[in-house]
Amino acid sequence: MKELDLYKNLIKRYLFYLLIFSCVFGLMNLIFNHSPLFSLLHSISYYLYGYTVALVTLNYYLFNLSISSGISRNGLYRVKLYSLSTITFFINIFIFSINLFSYILNNKQTDSIYMNLYFGFFNNNIINFISMFIIGFITIFFIMILFNTLGTFLSLFNVLGKIITFFVIYAMIHIGLISFSIYYFVFGFKNINLQPTFDLITGLNTSTAGGGNTGNPISIAITLILFTCLLLFINYKLTKKFQIRK
């Protein structure tokens, strides 16, 4: 089946470059920074993230390949989802493993955000680890879809359009930040309490079953899943809009 073959092709390519990437940066880190094993692996994982994110935005190229092979935009969307899920899975396993080993060997000290914020919510440590794995997948998948959707959006424009869009978004963010600051600091917007909303979304600062000061990972999971679904819908609509530029 065409889509399956395109998917396999993409994954093979991705893994191949991933391997090279990891080796090169791993080696460089080892040579120049004499990094201990875990920080080395951590830095590799950041590079993986960055590389994947960059890759994930190359949508026009993927569209060209698919439409010239008789794959419809629906099919392209499906291939994207399968590929991103697979890639997320690999990265998640990698990062999870690093954190697991770090936890075990470094006496419960890790760089993992999850571990610092949410670990210990459940009574059973095995469930805690499973939860970490799942939340990790959800988070990484969310990031992938976010960047792919952004990439898809930008791919719809030609070079000029991309530059304009970039500046518009840049300007919007700055205006947003400036107006927020003005409201908060100048007009004393402090009365509107954002804290409860924040807590609801992230599940932090709540009392837990396992005791201690850890947050509820289920809240953040639900939030991320909702946002992911929204992004998936937007991504689908955008993917359907692709056309060949002469």
Binding site: K2, L65, I67, S68, G70, I71, S72, R73, G75
Partner: peptide, 20 residues
């Protein structure tokens, strides 16, 4: 339009460069 079955029967050799 968006029909995988129909699109697999059509091939367009065009002046754009579709392959890497």
């Amino acid at each position: 339009h968006d029909n995988d079955n129909a699109l697999s029967k059509i091939y367009y050799m065009n002046q754009n460069n579709m392959y890497p």
